[in-house]
């Protein structure tokens, strides 16, 4: 009985560890520089942007929720064709922007 309890506890611990670590892995921060293909304003609090990754040439869809960047979409300080330096988390399969900046300056 004592041995069975130990085995169950060990398994539970292992399961918890796997869940915890997989959680960390899935929230990995990704950095990319890419050009805006499309900006879709979904609501006053959310926009979905398609960036073409300069390195891979593939499109990456990123959700933007910070007010500062959303305001830049609204008044076209950031628009289609702009090159962007972006950091995002891909937790739960959804890419959520953590940093979204135009690369260009004067």
């Amino acid at each position: 009985m004592k041995k069975a309890v130990s085995v169950v506890m060990a398994l539970a611990l292992l399961t918890m560890s796997i869940i915890s670590f997989s959680g960390v892995a899935s929230a990995e921060e990704v950095k990319l520089i890419g050009v805006i293909e499309k900006i879709e304003i979904k609501s006053p609090k959310e926009a979905v942007v398609t960036l073409k990754d300069n390195k891979t040439g593939k499109n990456v869809v990123i959700t933007v929720t910070d007010d500062l960047t959303l305001d830049k979409f609204k008044d076209k300080r950031i628009k289609d064709g702009d090159e962007i330096r972006c950091k995002y988390d891909n937790e739960g399969g959804k890419n959520t922007s953590k940093l979204f900046r135009k690369t260009a300056g004067c």
């Binding site: 300080r77 330096r85 900046r101 135009k102 300056g105 004067c106």
Partner: peptide, 18 residues
């Protein structure tokens, strides 16, 4: 802040560079 930072944040070759 937006009016000012539109230019002043982009100095030096990119956002917040300078």
């Amino acid at each position: 802040v937006k009016n000012c930072m539109t230019c002043h944040e982009a100095a030096g070759g990119g956002v917040y560079v300078k």
